[in-house]
């Protein structure tokens, strides 16, 4: 395992400059536009372990069960964007003819919104090709790690009652209703929701974020939280924010595609992870060769 030794847990470690010929200066939380390139501030998180409620739907003994909590480990430093991808960053990809224009008509240093999983992926691919580096959506585990104390799992209905499936539906419905979150549709400028203890900004604000993790139906063995079998549906991906939810890849408007009882995602956006070592190493890592 080799990695860049420059990192520090929870604070900014590296400011990565993406794009072309551009000053390294960063002042404060709001990078200013200076010419055609993209400046992306990164946060590098030290490796670590944490307990994580798994995403998806779970069955035990043929009835729904609460999501099992598993110990997850981030083994190498995780380099993730401090802010969500901005409307102006995304526009460069649109101008390049690669990305589809976002549904939201916002410009400048606000998060891009009105983008689907497919759009987010297209942007990551474009950025990777543009920079010769590997940029990708974080997995659910990586996002949760970066979100730290601001991570919220699914609105949980708890273990199902085999004699009464309705009980779980009512529990979940009431839990969600009780959250009482009001719609907050207008995206704010970068950093408006502040940073978490790890220095990552705007986590769980009013822009939900796409991840690379597929929705799954999993069956647990009856006596443990181990997953016996799982069927994933990669037409639907995990979306993170005020709570974790699941959306079809092509949904761009979280309100119509979204959750329930007053807590649908206000907006859909994303941030990316930067893979160290570029394409080759990333490919090797995916194949489990490093």
């Amino acid at each position: 395992m080799s990695f860049d030794p420059v990192f520090s847990f929870g604070t900014v470690a590296a400011a990565a400059l993406i794009g072309l010929g551009f000053s390294h200066a960063i002042d404060g939380m709001y990078p200013q536009p200076r010419g055609p390139a993209v400046l992306t501030e990164m946060v590098t998180l030290a490796p670590g372990s944490f307990d994580h409620p798994q995403p998806g739907e779970f069955l035990r003994d043929n009835h729904p069960a609460a999501a099992p909590v598993a110990k997850e480990t981030i083994e190498t430093p995780l380099e993730i964007m401090r802010f969500q991808v901005t409307a102006s960053d995304y526009d460069r990809c649109v101008l390049d003819g690669t990305c589809k224009p976002a549904d939201a008509n916002l410009a400048g240093y606000v998060p891009v919104t009105g983008v689907s999983f497919l759009d987010a992926q297209a942007y990551a691919n474009w950025l990777s090709a543009r920079t010769g580096e590997t940029w990708r959506l974080p997995t659910d585990v990586e996002w949760a790690y970066a979100a730290g104390e601001r991570f919220h799992a699914d609105i949980e209905g708890g273990d199902g009652d085999s004699a009464d499936p309705a009980r779980r539906w009512l529990t979940q419905y009431r839990t969600e209703a009780a959250l009482g979150r009001k719609p907050d549709p207008e995206p704010r400028s970068l950093g408006a929701f502040g940073a978490n203890s790890k220095g990552v900004a705007d986590i769980a604000g009013n822009v939900w974020e796409w991840t690379a993790t597929c929705y799954a139906h999993a069956t647990m063995s009856s006596d443990s939280t181990l997953i016996a079998s799982s069927i994933s549906n990669c037409g639907v991906h995990v979306v993170e924010g005020f709570h974790r939810t699941y959306m079809s890849n092509f949904i761009r408007d979280g309100k119509s595609g979204g959750c329930a009882v007053g807590t649908p995602p206000d907006n859909l956006g994303f941030r990316l992870v930067h893979e160290r070592g570029g394409f080759l190493q990333a490919a090797l890592r995916r194949l489990g060769l490093t």
Partner: peptide, 18 residues
Amino acid sequence: LTRREALLGSVLTAAAVA
């Protein structure tokens, strides 16, 4: 889907759940 996608414009999560 999706499970948390609301029925009728965000009323019900139930479709979901089970």
